[in-house]
């Protein structure tokens, strides 16, 4: 995501890059996120066993040199299951971020730019935000039935209003700036002004928000899966792993603790990343530093 910020602000690219590298939160977050992503995408190389291969004689093995994260009640390698399970979490997080980037941005930009749309769109988002987020996601997932795309849709509906709000606030500021007026005086139309002048200047808060959405989506997906409303149980996601391990929590602590730690590290990394990005890209901080 840092690279994206750099290409969007090439003028300040080097300066922004240096500031990011000096920001401890950003560096720590980037380190954790990279670690998690590498582990997940290199899972076939790292894991010795197939995630669904049962070895009944090996069941409930404690973490050891052979089974780094132990084995579960069917003798499946937890190391493989956690790495493969992360794929689904990250995939769902990714799609939730994408839907946010499209619909949240569209909703926020329209509400911020066109006065007539502001009230209807923002009241709609108020209505959605009035529900506790997990409750809303559970409701939507329960209606649509458990599947991966259900989880994506449910979480997107929960977070899109939040992204829309952030973007609307930025658009409200940028649309009153002199270069927007100047562009209108040069004969530019609404669409042109919105896409060429306003949105590129709203990128910094959007990137920060999307990094948080990613973190929340990973967390909420685990909640949904734990409750049996996420992905089908044949695919091990982190939430499902915790849910399955719950029955044996007294005998085999690693079945719940290890996927729990995976979630914690991923969310912590993404949050640190977002914090660092915010500190460096926040317009108020920028003014202070210049």
């Amino acid at each position: 995501m840092a690279d994206l910020a750099l290409t969007l602000f090439p003028a300040n690219a080097r300066r922004t890059g240096r500031k990011l590298l000096r920001n401890r939160a950003f560096v720590a977050g980037a380190f954790l996120v990279t670690l998690v992503f590498l582990a997940i995408f290199l899972a076939p190389l790292l894991a010795q066993y197939e995630p669904n291969r049962m070895q009944i004689r090996m069941r409930f093995r404690e973490p050891s040199a052979e089974f780094w994260f132990g084995t579960d009640n069917l003798g499946r390698d937890m190391f493989a299951r956690v790495l493969y399970g992360g794929r689904l979490s990250i995939e769902i997080g990714f799609w939730v971020v994408m839907l946010n980037a499209v619909f949240g941005v569209a909703m926020g930009a329209l509400a911020g730019y066109f006065r007539a749309l502001d009230n209807p769109l923002m009241r709609l988002s108020d209505a959605l935000m009035a529900f506790p987020s997990v409750l809303l996601a559970i409701g939507i997932a329960a209606i649509l039935g458990p599947s991966t795309s259900t989880a994506v849709i449910a979480l997107a509906v929960v977070y899109i209003p939040r992204t829309a709000r952030i973007l609307r606030a930025s658009v409200l500021v940028v649309r009153e700036l002199d270069y927007v007026h100047a562009s209108r005086a040069a004969g530019a139309g609404d669409w042109h002004i919105l896409t060429r002048h306003i949105l590129p200047n709203c990128m910094a808060p959007l990137l920060v928000q999307l990094s948080f959405v990613f973190a929340y989506a990973v967390l909420s997906e685990a909640v949904l899966s734990f409750l049996g409303l996420g992905a089908p149980p044949t695919v091990p996601s982190w939430g499902i792993l915790i849910s399955e391990g719950r029955s044996y929590i007294r005998e085999a602590w690693w079945l719940t603790v290890v996927p729990g730690l995976a979630i914690a590290i991923t969310v912590l990394g993404l949050n640190l990343l977002g914090d660092g990005l915010r500190d460096v890209l926040d317009p108020r901080m920028k003014i202070q530093q210049e």
Binding site: F9, A11, D178, H181, A182, A185, A186, H197
Partner: peptide
């Protein structure tokens, strides 16, 4: 809109902020 910028040009008071910072 077709007249603005084509038949009638306009310049503003604040040169410091009248250009979009993200484009050359």
């Amino acid at each position: 809109r077709r007249i603005r910028g084509k038949r009638i040009g306009m310049i503003f008071q604040e040169p410091m902020t009248s250009l979009n910072p993200v484009f050359p």
